[in-house]
């Protein structure tokens, strides 16, 4: 997402941004590895409420998630 005009990002926007950012930084390791590490990372470092919130966001705004981030979030909750 663009931050050109934002002063304070909403929590929902930030969670999507964070998931995508993790995925983007791991993408060079190949899709499968990147999905796995992104999922593990979110499990290890995100509070349970953030995790359930990002799953809800995926259901509502899936087009804003990168493919790696989306699959990682799905995998956490599968």
């Amino acid at each position: 997402m663009s931050h050109d005009d934002s002063e304070i990002m909403s929590t929902g926007d930030r969670l999507i941004y964070m998931a995508n950012q993790i995925a983007k930084n791991l993408a060079a390791r190949g899709d499968e590895e990147a999905i796995g590490i992104t999922a593990d990372h979110i499990k290890a470092y995100w509070d349970p409420l953030m995790r359930s919130r990002v799953a809800d966001l995926l259901a509502q705004r899936s087009d804003e998630f990168s493919p790696i981030a989306a699959e990682a979030v799905r995998r956490i909750h599968s």
């Binding site: 304070i8 929590t11 930030r14 290890a44 470092y45 995100w46 509070d47 349970p48 409420l49 953030m50």
Partner: peptide, 18 residues
Amino acid sequence: AEPGLRIPNMLDAATDGT
């Protein structure tokens, strides 16, 4: 056994009311 909130996450959660 669950990780807690980091400082920026605490601030986000505060503005969200949780």
